[in-house]
Nucleic acid binder design. Structure first.
Lengths: 350, 350
DNA sequence: TCATTTACTTTGAACGATCAAATCATGCCC
DNA sequence: GGGCATGATTTGATCGTTCAAAGTAAATGA
């Protein structure tokens, strides 16, 4: 109840008109310095806050950013989105935006939610996660010229997949992991990843592969990458059996994995594996489970990624024309994007 | 752009007035059946959606529920809020509400955010998490008659701590864990918890204590509970050392822990402990790390808890008077609340 | 001196919905 | 057939803000 201060109340108390108060906040340059200061003082004193609903009615902008929240995923990697979300909320608040949540069972349902939200709360932008090949969500949004940023690269290079994005360089992460193992003296380094086709998985595998290939061409002996590679569905179980198989047939002394789930399984296999030196294992995502298990893992800078998303959006929303021309590619250059390097969190396992 | 359908468009297309369209949606009973059907059809055909901003302007209700999101916490238990949040978003959507996020460094900052949000986006209600003794947030909200629900009991019984809440019965969880161990033949069951004073921690300890006490009075030999109890700060490390200490001095054959973090530490201590039968360990929260480690753990029904929160709020918001009288306790009964029983997820560790 | 510019400030109008009150039919009863 | 309750629908007014246009006063120029 304490809050019922309208712009008119401020205007009256300051002895000016509504519009002058509005201008003090939105276009300070047109208000005389003295007036401006006085109005600001009154605003402060009365604790005035612009009513967003009324503002939105007039301007059409809600200062809301919508993002989908998924149920923890496989569980292990659930907290990744959690941390991203925290960063997003925090950065958004700094820029004057708030984060609105929604859920959706699949991409089609998500588009239905887009329609619903755009009709009711009218968020200024969406943040998409888990983008993939032939993502119908991105094309739907692009067709309508609706602002959005994807956390994750567009894995297709089709022209209709051009949109702003922020991502973490997975290949660079697995490369760092592999180099770390090389530096520790390992030479036979295996990789447990996911079946080809997922952009994220292929990316992470590539970092490992290119590092070993580079080593091979340096030292002469290239090594048989295929023998050191296993591709399985994500999960602790499958990580364990893949690792067991790999250890038996290819005798690696270290393993890089595409996820912490796989790595945790691999860690179990490595521990029950008899051999001289213990087999080193590195995971990906630096999840709490990795902390708990003492698993060395590739850490994603999620707060930075979230901040980059908000920055890209804020910039897009300032120049409304930037995105509003779906057909006509305004600039021949690539869409705005940010690719962040991950870091390696070193623990006992490697 | 496809969305610019206003209530006037619908009215024109249906050959009725604005208000009749509004009534079909908000007070269907006053509209003639035939008209209602026709209007609904037109609404469907045009894809009309009520503009929330305009609605809020008139009604003062935003259909937004605000909740604070924390950075993953200690990491391990981070995903608990994650799952709760998902449930909240989903249930809220069913009831026609959306979830708005915010962050805050501490309780004082959170109150500042309350003021900010109430002045701008005007959420209809707040969901508080991690309530504690002498929580200034609850009293602040109560004083102003602002609707909210706490996920977590008011741990104080002061009259100014009376508010609706939803919680999971921690004592019942540790009781179930203890009974499970008793059924497996264990008799010396230790407990690793947090220092007294935190409501949650005391509650979880109580479930273990009362179960063993009940057993004692049945069998005659009560046993020395204090010797089997350790109270330490949360964390894997401290769990490990507490467990090591407990195993050495009190020789328990099983351990119940107040969190998965503690339990993971205890599990490590238990594994490196030589003795006949392996020491059983049970954790609390059923986090992904527990899944990964094969840790038996007490599982909180977070989706149900979230649904209960939304239900309580929705009910409160229907009768605006229920909460709006801060001083005058409208009914002498306790505030509305829901206490949910957790369940035990059994894995290898016990 | 009077028109013209410059620098601020104020005045209606509008955004899209709902509330409250007014209007318009109908049917019923005496 | 007139009076009247009842049901169904319509008509202004309003929520708080910003846009666009209009107003005012002082400063400038011829």
């Amino acid at each position: 109840m304490a809050d019922k201060v309208t712009i008119t109340d401020v205007a009256r108390a300051a002895g000016v008109s509504r519009q002058t108060v509005s201008n003090t906040l939105n276009s300070p340059e047109v208000v005389r310095e003295e007036t401006r200061r006085h109005v600001l003082e009154v605003i402060e004193r009365l604790g005035y806050r612009a009513n967003q609903a009324a503002r939105q009615m007039r301007t059409g902008r809600s200062r809301l950013i919508a993002i989908r929240i998924d149920p923890g995923g496989d569980g292990i990697s659930g907290s990744v989105l959690d941390r991203f979300l925290h960063g997003l909320t925090e950065t958004a608040a700094h820029e004057g935006y708030r984060v609105l949540l929604y859920t959706a069972a699949d991409d089609r349902a998500e588009i239905a939610t887009f329609e619903d939200l755009l009709g009711s709360y009218k968020p200024d932008a969406f943040v998409l996660t888990a983008t993939h090949h032939d993502d119908i969500r991105t094309s739907w949004l692009l067709e309508r010229g609706l602002p959005f940023v994807a956390f994750g690269r567009p894995w297709s290079h089709l022209p209709d997949a051009r949109h702003p994005w922020v991502d973490v360089d997975g290949a660079s992460g697995t490369e760092a992991a592999t180099r770390h193992l090389l530096a520790a003296g390992h030479r036979r380094i295996g990789f447990i990843g996911w079946p080809s086709g997922s952009g994220v998985g292929d990316d992470r595998r590539a970092g490992w592969a290119r590092t070993l290939t580079a080593l091979g061409s340096e030292t002469g002996g290239a090594g048989d990458l295929d023998a050191l590679l296993r591709s399985v569905e994500d999960g602790i179980e499958s990580g364990q059996s893949a690792a067991r198989d790999l250890l038996r047939t290819a005798a690696p002394t270290a393993l890089v994995c595409a996820s912490d789930s796989l790595a945790l399984g691999a860690l179990q296999a490595a521990r029950s594996h008899e051999g001289g030196r213990p087999v080193a294992v590195i995971g990906f995502d630096d999840t709490p489970a990795a902390t708990a298990a003492g698993l060395t893992s590739v850490h994603q800078p999620l707060a930075e990624a979230a901040a980059a998303c908000v920055d890209l959006l804020a910039r897009t929303l300032e120049n409304p024309d930037a995105m509003r021309s779906p057909g006509a590619e305004s600039s021949p250059s690539e869409q705005a994007h940010v690719l962040l390097p991950p870091s390696l969190t070193i623990r006992q396992s490697a």
